[in-house]
Simulated assay, not measured.
Amino acid sequence: MHIAEGFLPPVWAAVWTVFAIPFVAYGTYRVAKYVRRSPERMAMLALAGAFMFVLSALKLPSVTGSTSHPTGTGIAIVLFGPGVTAVLSTIVLVYQALLLAHGGITTLGANVASMGIIGPIVGYLGYRVARQQSGVVTGTFVATVLADWTTYLVTSAQLGAAFPAGEGIGGMIGATGNFAAIFAVTQLPIGIVEGVIAAAMIKQLLVVKPAVKSKLGVTT
């Protein structure tokens, strides 16, 4: 759900940039802490980032000025939590904006806020609940689906606030609903498919990488 370069009014681009900065700063601290304590985790960070880059680059036309696609954040959420996910998302979004013309630099704050911050936070909360009830693999599916769907809802709200359908809050809410309805056609099934892929990947990692079991607290 990358919002295209120059599509947001400057004031909204600035608002979302200011919103994103402290989360990315905290995530940077978390990444540095991970690397200092366990340099071998760089490989897992690279894996999570690559997964995110590839999946979120698979774009389908959707709302004017945006696209529908997987977010790829599920693996990072499960392995490292939402703070690190914010940093990986920012790196991925910068590269995609510069190399693929997917998203943009002026809209980077908005895209990071939706895909790298709010979506992963909701996904992580869902993961914690689902994991307690049904285990890591099911938790990964829930985290991924919730992060994906939340990302598209936040993007809808960002577009609705920037381009309201009428005066006041009602116009913003109406526009948000219109954007969300269009996104839903592609994003609802995309989120489910992405959840299946992420869950399968975590399941395989638990088999071939004992260190992942320790990281996730899996005892069996």
Rank of each mutant, 00 (worst) to 15 (best):
S66G: 06
M115I: 09
M172H: 08
S134T: 10
T176A: 08
T64D: 07
V94W: 01
A110T: 05
K59F: 11
M52L: 12
S62P: 03
V18P: 08
G139T: 02
A25I: 14
T151C: 11
V129E: 06
T144D: 00
G104K: 01
G126I: 02
Y124L: 08
R128W: 05
A162F: 10
L8W: 05
A199P: 04
V137D: 05
T138R: 15
G103W: 03
L55R: 04
P39C: 06
A165C: 06
E167C: 06
I118W: 01
Y95C: 12
K203A: 13
L100N: 13
G116R: 04
L153F: 11
P39W: 10
L108P: 06
A165F: 11
G160M: 02
L100S: 11
G170D: 11
T73H: 04
I182G: 06
A180V: 07
P120Q: 03
V196R: 07
A32D: 10
F183W: 09
V207C: 06
W149M: 07
A32W: 15
G103V: 11
I118L: 14
R37Y: 06
Q187H: 15
L58R: 14
I202G: 00
T144I: 03
H2F: 06
V112E: 00
A157N: 03
T219R: 15
T71V: 15
G177Y: 08
G49V: 05
P120C: 05
G104W: 02
V92P: 00
V142F: 00
F179W: 07
I173F: 05
G49A: 13
Q96Y: 04
V196F: 13
V122T: 08
I75V: 15
V24G: 00
K215P: 01
V196S: 08
K33M: 13
S62W: 00
T106L: 12
N178G: 14
M172D: 07
E167K: 15
A4I: 12
G6M: 09
V15I: 15
V84R: 00
P210K: 14
G139Q: 02
A199W: 01
Y95H: 10
E167M: 12
I173D: 02
A184K: 12
G104H: 06
